[in-house]
Simulated assay, not measured.
Amino acid sequence: MSDTVTSLLLRYWQMTDRHRADLAPYSDAYGDTDDTDEDYADAQAEAAAETHDFLTAAMEELAEHFPLPAGLPVTVPGANGARFSLITGQLDDHARKAFTRGQCHALARALAEVTGWPMAVLITPDCTYDTDQCSADDDAYAGLCACRFHHVVVVRPDGALVDAYGAHQPGDVPDAEGYRHIPLNETGWEFLAGSPAWRRPAVTVARTFTAALLAELDTTR
């Protein structure tokens, strides 16, 4: 684990040294810059974008090596601006709501990691919000407009669809009765994870709930 931290630090320092060298030509002898210089603004924006991407990836890498402990109070974003305060590993009704009302994709991802079961997304028959936002050529994933993506699950080997409330037969997922599902591959996951219509996937938090959910499935099959 210490090797991971050391590697991240070295890469970060190398990146910031490069950014400093790239921006140096735009500074005077006192280190002041002309904020109206468009070339400087472009170089600064490029450096900021790279730093953002690096830090995002670094946090994900650290999360792989330093999993959250059980019993930790956390807050995750939900649908329509909701915020859910959870206790990691405590699979109560509040947690189930969080993982079906805004964080279903995070739980599906975490379950897929630990079980190897494929993810799937349930599709609504029509757009669930303003259809004007869905043009005829809007095929964000699998030829479908993003407004039809409703709920993410994993598919158990027996065909059951699993979410925070357990295993369901296709077509019988609560609040999505009759909806068909399609496979959600890595391309689809990357779309959902980065889409402004979906919340930041709190996968690190979701990982703390997989053991409790899978234990329930074992006792109810």
Rank of each mutant, 00 (worst) to 15 (best):
L62I: 13
A48D: 13
R18C: 09
D32G: 07
D34A: 09
R18T: 12
P25T: 08
A48I: 00
A57F: 01
D35R: 06
E46W: 01
D32K: 10
A45V: 03
T36Y: 08
A24E: 12
A58M: 08
H52S: 14
P67R: 06
D39H: 12
Y40D: 07
E60K: 08
G31Y: 13
A58C: 04
E46M: 14
Q44W: 07
H65G: 01
A41W: 04
H52C: 07
A24P: 03
E50L: 15
Q44S: 15
E60T: 11
E61H: 04
A63S: 14
L55R: 06
R18A: 12
E50I: 08
L23D: 07
D22L: 13
L23I: 02
D42M: 11
E46L: 15
H52L: 04
Y30W: 11
H65V: 14
L55G: 04
E61T: 15
Y40M: 13
R20F: 09
D28W: 08
D39C: 03
D53L: 09
R20V: 03
L55C: 11
A24R: 12
D53Y: 00
Y26V: 12
A58K: 06
G31K: 09
H19P: 06
L55K: 07
E38Q: 14
D42W: 08
A41F: 00
E61C: 10
E60A: 14
F66N: 05
Y26M: 03
D22F: 02
L23A: 01
D42T: 13
D34E: 15
D32N: 15
D53I: 02
P67F: 08
E64Q: 09
D37I: 04
H19F: 12
F54H: 05
D53W: 00
S27H: 08
P67I: 06
E60R: 11
A45P: 00
E50W: 09
Y26S: 05
D37R: 10
A41I: 01
A49N: 12
E46N: 10
